[in-house]
């Protein structure tokens, strides 16, 4: 049996909004560690890894490991019926082909349950190797979203280059070119407004902007985003989920052959 109670139900709503554009169907895996998901987009260019640790739930019961296949648009339809301040409980019985989402209003005067059919999804888990990244950039998530949006009105791809000068986002298209440089900036009022660049060595990689823009759907989950880059490795765009875990998006680079 599975029963997960999340007082801050809006987190789950935001998680679904963050990934449903990228991934259509996915298996949600429940174990003693937490509630997790690993899935790729249909063209296998991007991968999303979600972890919500069991300690982050008010109540977490998972008697045995369970993998639940869901259509993310359908999950999103269900969760959009929950109020932003609602407590959300996810329930499933062993061997059942349904999952139940229960929504409780904060003062307990409204309780709703939505039962959704599960589906069988063939998916293989990929081993994500631990890597030392050549450069790690932490910046306000809203700033990163703005940059991706702005550049995608000019071109289709972004070159992200990290040097000791800062991090540069460049694109080129039919109408012209654009370069946005963000320098390290630690002298800000709030730590979440800082741009911090940890560089072992300079790195420059090319990525499809369409996917980057899709990742920024996770912006409401975190004030900051961390971008980890290494030559010949997928970039990692990570949004931490307060006290609970993370969403990490991996995007394979475009490489000159």
């Amino acid at each position: 049996m599975l029963e997960l109670r999340l007082v801050q139900g809006s987190l789950l709503k935001k998680v679904l909004e963050a990934i449903r554009e990228l991934v259509t169907d996915a298996n949600f895996d429940c174990s003693a560690t937490g509630f997790s998901l690993q899935a790729m987009d249909s063209s296998h260019v991007a991968l999303v890894a979600l972890l919500l640790r069991s300690e982050g739930f008010e109540h977490y019961r998972c008697d045995r490991n369970l993998s639940m296949g869901m259509n993310l648009n359908n999950v999103s339809k269900m969760l959009r019926c929950a109020g932003n301040n609602d407590i959300i409980t996810v329930k499933a019985d062993d061997g059942s082909d349904t999952v139940t989402f229960m929504f409780e209003s904060p003062n307990q005067d409204k309780i709703a349950d939505f039962e959704m059919k599960l589906m069988d999804i063939d998916s293989e888990h990929l081993g994500i190797p631990d890597a030392e990244y050549q450069a790690i950039v932490r910046m306000p998530s809203s700033e990163f979203a703005r940059i991706c949006k702005d550049l995608s009105s000019i071109g289709d791809t972004v070159i992200i280059s990290v040097t000791k000068e800062g991090v540069k986002f460049s694109t080129a298209g039919d109408i012209g070119t654009a370069n946005i440089v963000c320098r390290q900036n630690k002298t800000v009022d709030k730590p979440e407004e800082a741009t911090i660049i940890e560089m072992q060595e300079p790195v420059s990689l090319t990525f499809a902007l369409r996917y980057m823009n899709s990742f920024t759907k996770a912006t409401p989950l975190s004030e900051t985003v961390t971008i980890s880059l290494s030559s010949d490795l997928p970039v990692v765009v990570e949004y931490k989920i307060a006290e609970m875990g993370y969403i990490r998006f991996y995007l394979a680079p475009k490489i000159e052959e």
């Binding site: 490795l233 997928p234 680079p253 475009k254 000159e256």
Partner: peptide, 14 residues
């Protein structure tokens, strides 16, 4: 023109 790679080139199946 740089060619789009896929994730499986970098991450092996478990």
């Amino acid at each position: 023109k740089p060619k789009q790679q896929t994730i499986s080139r970098f991450f092996p199946p478990k």
